[in-house]
Design a binder for these strands. Structure first.
Lengths: 352, 352
DNA sequence: CTCACGCGGTAAACCGATTTACCACTATCG
DNA sequence: CGATAGTGGTAAATCGGTTTACCGCGTGAG
């Protein structure tokens, strides 16, 4: 184990002082070191493979170029890892490293994690949730932290969440544009209801209203948030009498949509000829794998992850916190599960 | 912004020197400080909320209690996040923090990441792949690093990988035990073939041999590693003449199994009455959601993640590197996709 | 009386960088 | 000729801990 090489080694080899080396390598040219000396220092540094000890530097400069990334859990919702990956990429792009801590949502662990990371002198915190939530931010979370996929119940933090309402609008509009007028919302049955559930309902109702469609309460059903629940809930609307039966389903998420596929099959309906389906989440390994591939709305996890880190590091303007969380658009991903409604009395009117 | 409190503040308040504070708080009782002084120091430290600056400490002690976790990518295979989560939990349990860097497999980025992390004076490295691979370990990866879900092509590193062969044995044995004798292996068609593909084939053949079943080459088919590919490949064996047709499918992964379900449906076969299916991966959001829920083999991601960190930190014995990678067992997850073969000439013999 | 030792604790070096204040020397200007 | 400015660079303080060497004092042994 050879001793690590330090700034003094460079200084000795280059025949200058450590101060000069530091000045040169950090481009502090206020002290205009002549080009030839700079050149020599740089060459020596490269030759002997010098890399500054960031501990020592951080101790002095009070900047560690590290970020604490505190999340509730990363495993429960596999697709949210995009958020972490994007955050890490953004950190690297800005010369920072990510300390990853997941607390399982335990407030005690959260406090501990924040304290540990502060002892590490991190430059800032990203506090991330793995699904869109309103959170009671830990009291010890320093001002300046950024919230990711979470809106603060209290306190002023920049925060970014998916635009669930807008995503729902895009999804339902797609169905209306295809000519559907009887569109069910297969919601999830969870208590307390996640924010996304209500927001997507708002988007759903907004589109119906704009399209002049009277919402039918019988078409808003709820089921467990898995394929079985989706199948059961979808079955309930598919068993309505023909004149009240929906020709399209807007599903709260792709898992429910997967259940809806099963229900459709069970009722002898083909997708998209007899029934159109739109999901939400664009879940890897499901949405594209279904038969037919599912039209769905993607959650902008990567964009949000990048946004949070960039705001934290000042690489992007901080939003004014008065206007609430920043809404990140949820793009519609068109695949093959939407078609015109089965022939009826009136042909579907296309908009635009 | 109040100045952070340091060891000197504690020293002043407690009426002792900084050295004493350090000695007490680190339990260096070689200098037996009397209990009352210790008590006083500790009380003051707690009162004013002292927490040591780990940068300064690390600078002096050359131990940072941080680990560099370098992975190729974390997003492509969502389920592998368990590995990261478990690694982080194990790190925390041992008083360490995790620096997370994913490099996308780019060797240039890998070098850069290792250098950056070394500049941070990390105590050690975990080098992780998100699927079982043989890797050419970067030359700059320090000795003592631990490989996770990867076996080194060269160099001596402790390494842990899933026991794909053993998992396949468990899966196929389950089918044999249910009475099946015509069992297909729906493999993936990828070049180069992943290690897991060959290892699972070995396990498959081993069970057949032990059970005295002559392997039928026509029952080893390959398809793209997605639902469509699985469906297509499964169809090929299901269309064989009745006397050569398999009564059970062992699928390389759950996505292929998902396709096999579709193929079975298309051929009018019910699972598990007409056809038994076993998958691999125990992929969240698929395996349990299929109808019927899929019997499959789980990858021990969490166990491997924990193992790697514990070995790195010395909380677990280092394996001798001569014996190759440590094989982590892949448990069989029994659900509802396996049953006895449809009635035939001879009833299934059950073993044990 | 002197020496050794235990007790309770501290001063100071050290880790490896950054940064400020200043120095020695030359050239230029009035 | 003395003052001033510019050039090229360094010494030393600093960040906040850890750790080693040592100190002053009292006491009991030889």
């Amino acid at each position: 184990m050879t001793r690590r090489i330090g700034i003094k080694d460079v200084a000795r080899e280059a025949g200058v002082s450590a101060a000069t080396v530091s000045l040169v390598l950090n481009d502090r040219s206020s002290h205009r070191i002549p080009a030839v000396t700079q050149e020599r220092v740089r060459r020596v540094a490269a030759e002997i493979g010098y890399a500054p000890n960031t501990l020592a530097r951080g101790l002095r400069t009070r900047q560690t170029r590290t970020i604490g990334f505190v999340s509730d859990r990363i495993a429960t919702t596999p697709y949210a890892v995009r958020m972490i990956e994007a955050a890490q990429d953004a950190a690297r792009a800005n010369g920072h490293l990510l300390f990853l801590v997941n607390t399982g949502g335990d407030p005690e662990l959260e406090r501990e994690a924040i304290a540990t990371l502060q002892a590490q002198q991190v430059d800032g915190f990203v506090y991330a949730c793995m699904w869109h939530r309103a959170v009671d931010v830990p009291a010890t979370l320093p001002a300046g932290s950024v919230l990711l996929d979470a809106r603060p119940l209290t306190g002023e933090f920049p925060s970014v969440v998916p635009d669930d309402r807008g995503g729902a609008v895009a999804a339902v509009q797609e169905l209306v544009d295809a000519g559907h007028t009887r569109i069910a919302y297969v919601d999830i049955d969870e208590h307390p209801a996640p924010l996304a559930s209500g927001l997507r309902l708002e988007g759903y109702l907004e589109v119906l209203e704009r399209a002049g469609i009277e919402p039918d309460p019988a078409l808003h059903v709820r089921g467990e948030s898995d394929a079985a629940g989706g199948r059961e809930a979808a079955s309930r609307v598919l068993e309505l009498p023909a004149d009240r039966r929906p020709t399209a389903l807007f599903c709260f998420n792709d898992r429910i949509a997967m259940g809806a596929y099963a229900a459709a099959r069970h009722h002898g309906m083909e997708i998209p000829t007899d029934l159109s389906v739109v999901g939400y989440d664009d879940q890897q390994l499901i949405a594209a794998e279904l038969d037919p591939p599912l039209t769905t709305v993607a959650l902008p996890h990567a964009e949000m992850g990048r946004w949070a880190v960039e705001v934290l590091l000042g690489a992007r303007d901080r939003p004014s916190t008065e206007e609430g969380p920043v809404l990140m658009p949820c793009p519609l991903i068109r695949r093959d599960s939407v078609g015109p409604p089965p022939t009826r009395q009136q042909p579907g009117r296309r908009r635009a």
